[in-house]
Simulated assay, not measured.
Amino acid sequence: MLILPLATMVAALTMVSAADAATPIAGRWLTEEASAIVTIAPCGAATCGRITKLIKGPPSGPPLDRNNPDARLRDRPIEGLVILTEFKDGGDDWRGRIYDPKSGKTYKSILKREADGGLKVQGCIAFFCRTQRWTAAR
Rank of each mutant, 00 (worst) to 15 (best):
R133M: 05
E86G: 01
I78D: 12
D93F: 01
R28M: 06
C43S: 13
K102N: 14
T31I: 05
I98N: 03
K108P: 00
S35R: 12
L111N: 00
S35Y: 04
T14Y: 06
V82C: 05
K88E: 04
A34N: 15
D75E: 12
T106M: 09
R74L: 10
S60G: 15
T31R: 05
K112Q: 14
E114A: 12
K53Q: 15
G118S: 14
R95K: 14
P69A: 10
D70H: 02
S60D: 15
E79L: 05
P24C: 04
G80P: 06
G61S: 03
R74M: 11
T106F: 03
C43Y: 09
A7P: 01
L30R: 10
L6K: 11
G27D: 04
G57T: 08
L84V: 06
R66T: 14
R133N: 11
F128T: 10
F127R: 06
V16T: 12
A115F: 09
I98T: 05
T8E: 12
G123V: 03
T14K: 12
Y107G: 02
S17T: 13
L81H: 09
V82A: 08
L73H: 09
R76N: 14
K53F: 02
A12K: 04
L2P: 09
R76Y: 06
L73N: 13
L64R: 12
K112E: 12
